[in-house]
């Protein structure tokens, strides 16, 4: 198992390298130079000597490929560079924002699973009934509604009907004030969880319908097992595999930051960090954030592989490796 996971992790190395190459050279294709992007209008006040020494300081005077390999070399030593806009090392900036995104992603997935699994199972049990129809309608709407619409609607309803402004004030850390933190993070999490719950519901329903038609379910019934045991131990467990894949893919995206929802609810997460870094052309930060997001994908993929083996003993990586 460990050998398999190591092999998988190594297989992702070219992908991660590809990401670094793509990001590094894409950013250098942006019109305008880095110094102007960093300093804005103040760059116009620099003398030629000042500009040259700044370029030398940031290594911008060297050819692109040298800059790339320097960056890669530093990366291997845990040095992601220095964010000019934040005046901090890139890694520190990312690690300060990541807990927000992680908390948001975990809550969103939990909300989606709570809604999606429950309604998916109910819809499959009461197949072709009114409940099923309502469930499917909910899924269709959930899949069609963009999260910026749901987010805007939630803010509208809360502010007009309940006098609550979910995005007011500065972000409070979970360790500082858990209650205030929960108040700030729950609505963006509902926004993200709602759309995802629709996908989970659809997947649960179709996977459960398929499993419920299998022979071993009939066998379990004929053995006289309770319906609840059949559903939870025999049906749902086997229906979970495609759902785990779905959750894995979605969690990868959520951990990559949800630019729009973080922007609407003014949450200082990874998505907003990436968005601001891109629009402010903070080279080192863009490189660091995108690499971080790609690494998240790799880790999530490995976790999903591991969860498969827990759910289905027939999936054993030991045999293959």
């Amino acid at each position: 198992m460990l050998r398999y996971l190591t092999q998988r992790a190594i297989a992702f190395v070219p992908t991660v390298l590809g990401v670094t190459l793509l990001v590094f050279f894409a950013i250098r294709a942006i019109p305008g130079d880095a110094i102007t992007a960093m300093l804005g209008t103040e760059a116009g006040m620099l003398t030629a000597n000042q500009r040259a020494s700044l370029e030398e300081y940031f290594g911008l005077d060297k050819p692109s490929y040298v800059q790339y390999f320097n960056w890669l070399g530093n990366l291997l030593q845990g040095d992601l560079g220095y964010s000019v806009r934040h005046g901090q090392p890139v890694l520190d900036v990312i690690l300060a924002r990541f807990p927000v995104t992680l908390e948001l992603a975990v809550l969103a997935v939990l909300i989606a699973l709570a809604i999606g699994l429950t309604f998916g199972v109910i819809a499959a049990i009461f197949h072709n009934s009114v409940i099923d129809l309502f469930g499917q309608l909910f899924a269709l709407i959930g899949l069609a509604a963009p999260n910026f619409l749901i987010g805007t609607l939630i803010i509208y309803v809360l502010s007009v009907y309940f006098g609550i402004l979910p995005n007011a004030g500065n972000y409070v850390d979970l360790t500082e004030d858990p209650v205030k933190n929960f108040e700030q993070i729950i609505f963006p999490a509902i926004t993200l969880g709602f759309a995802f719950s629709a996908s989970v519901m659809r997947m649960t329903r179709s996977a459960m319908l398929e499993v419920l038609g299998q022979d071993y379910i009939r066998t379990a019934r004929s053995k006289g097992l309770r319906e609840r045991t059949i559903l939870s131990r025999h049906a749902l467990r086997n229906a979970l595999i495609p759902i785990v894949t779905l959750v894995g893919v979605e969690a990868g995206y959520l951990l990559g930051g949800t630019v729009i929802v973080e922007e609407i609810f003014t949450l200082p997460g990874i998505g907003r960090l990436a968005y601001n870094a891109i629009s402010q052309r903070d080279y080192a930060l863009i490189q660091g954030v995108t690499l971080f997001i790609a690494l998240n994908f790799v880790v999530i993929n490995l976790v999903v592989d591991f969860v498969y083996t827990l759910l289905d003993p027939r999936i054993s990586y030991a045999k293959h490796s």
């Binding site: 590809g18 990401v19 793509l22 950013i27 995206y253 630019v259 998505g271 990436a274 995108t290 997001i293």
Partner: peptide
């Protein structure tokens, strides 16, 4: 190469392209 593009969330990749 396609895997590299898959490692980005869609909106972030689109953002990157639009900014470039």
């Amino acid at each position: 190469v396609m895997d590299v593009f898959f490692a980005f969330p869609a909106i972030l990749l689109a953002l990157l392209v639009v900014v470039v």
